[in-house]
Design a binder for these strands. Sequence first.
DNA 1: GTTAGCACTCGTACCAAGTGAGTGCTAACC
DNA 2: GGTTAGCACTCACTTGGTACGAGTGCTAAC
Lengths: 342, 342
Amino acid sequence: MLNRRKTKILEAIVSDYIASAEPIGSRTIAKRYDLGVSSATIRNEMSDLEDMGYILQPHSSSGRVPSDKGYRLYVDRVMPKKPLNKDHREYLKRAIAMDVNRIDQMMRDVARAVSHVTSYTAVAAEPLVRRHKIQHIQLVPVDDYAMAMMLITDLKAVKNQMVIVHQAPNHGVAGRMSVELTNLFKGASADDLCELFTGMARHRFAEIGFDVRLVSPLMDAVYAALASADNVQVYTSGMKNILDFPEFADLGKARAVVGTLEEKESLLTLLADNSEQITVIIGGENENTMLRDCSVIKAKIRINEHFSGNIAIIGPTRMDYSQVMTVLGAIVKNLTLSEIDR
Amino acid sequence: MLNRRKTKILEAIVSDYIASAEPIGSRTIAKRYDLGVSSATIRNEMSDLEDMGYILQPHSSSGRVPSDKGYRLYVDRVMPKKPLNKDHREYLKRAIAMDVNRIDQMMRDVARAVSHVTSYTAVAAEPLVRRHKIQHIQLVPVDDYAMAMMLITDLKAVKNQMVIVHQAPNHGVAGRMSVELTNLFKGASADDLCELFTGMARHRFAEIGFDVRLVSPLMDAVYAALASADNVQVYTSGMKNILDFPEFADLGKARAVVGTLEEKESLLTLLADNSEQITVIIGGENENTMLRDCSVIKAKIRINEHFSGNIAIIGPTRMDYSQVMTVLGAIVKNLTLSEIDR
DNA sequence: GTTAGCACTCGTACCAAGTGAGTGCTAACC
DNA sequence: GGTTAGCACTCACTTGGTACGAGTGCTAAC
């Protein structure tokens, strides 16, 4: 572990670099921070820090820049925790629709507000419903060959799915079918669905006199409603902010990031996270090579006792980790007015 | 109107500039196009074209570049129509899910495929359901204070809306309420909904003995399901392509475009278009000043006799109008395999 | 262990000259 | 009168050379 002075110097380099995007020299540190030693001493310490891999020199006569390892140490041990800025707290409170019944709107608002407050890019995804338990299934015939299925889960998520069949039943039959399906599937999750359920459904349909050929498309629809990625919304906000950072003046880099942020699949991979903690991924730690010049800070966000979505902030490696973690912390903890208030 | 030679020269300038992004000189035209005259003559003609405002000179000793007016003339009268490239036709055919029952997927696929084929940015929106007529309304209680409403229109669009009430009815009552609401509203569109309907509903609810206090939230929900912009999906694809064009190497310009493409509202404004024709908006003709350096080609796309969504292609002013119009033309005409085949 | 001093490095800004693509104009040509 | 060759001129861009300055590493003295 580093001694106190080296730690101070690393902190100075990281925080100055975050603010200025310019390599930091020994004299700058000597002047700006009151370490009680001369620039020459700081130079010696910096040389050590470089040997240890915490900082880098872009070229032999320039100042130092933090390495991924340096940022990592900074984030894990050195970084001071910032309190949540009062204006930001107010802004977040006002900007986020606190209507738990419009999860989609809420997630969109969260992404928007967080990207606005941090001036990075925010990505948020609705909660997955894979694990939710089926509470109610409702079928409504749409025309001769299609039924609309509405599926409600124990956690109040509502999903639609079109069911295409060779011959749709009439309203009355569809209604009774809804009751039967609800009885059969109530309490099951997408992960529970298997041949057993199909068999049960087929048996019951035959028993009552429903068309057994409907079972297979219905099962598929139930599964799709709960497990299809198409049924998950991902909200991105503040992509243009990326273009403000000098590190992305290189259009190739900007392209890589914008391309990644455009793909729902890569965003879902990025967001996937079950940790209860706020997770920080720094530069090269990203599995997605397109994000090698970015850092990602992500968290599971709890909306109420039932729902939790995911949010990630994406910015340059040189991002204000402390601020972002503070903002996410406030939101993660609990998305209620009173909690953001504290 | 321009004489034949001037037209040829304008065509040469525009098409060369589209291909190269470099100002075109008289000698280049003389060499590359067989006009049977020398570069000096072409110079004289170009001078005339500049006086007429069709071309511009970035600086006094450079070649010429088309002006917005020049592009306009090119698009309206000069441009040769390209046939749809065979590979592209195949690609479009394969890439677009032809499942009319998944409009959302289809619009997403259209945007993706078109942006891929053209290498510009594509934006597509689902059809609006404002004008659709209500065919069926289904209510399902979710908990004590909420019902999920599923609304199906005559054109088979399915919309969800949560209805928050002080006391939700049980399943049976919700079912009967669904029948009543369907009877009351069948055939009405969002634009028809007015006080009259509210009055009728209130009267009928009182008659049957339903809780009259539910009428107002129900009416709001019906309206929101049909008319809320929140219920329209907009798909953007190929934003990163924008960053490939040298005209957007200036990060300020790139930022303006990316920012606009991020905002659902501005995209909906951009897409709004009832013309049956393919519409071309060139550079400064854009009402949105953020898109002053872009051209937009948009069209209403017909999916089948019922549905039509909107699509727009956004690229630099120097875009390949002919190619894009050909591609859109193929899709606009009719989104069925057989039509794209032709 | 700390520091002052100094030589050295290297990116950047600046400048001047050269290059070349392109123009406009003029006078001659068909 | 339209066309063309020729020529002077413009201007962005490249190249190379110089100066600058921020910053370093090393050394010797404190």
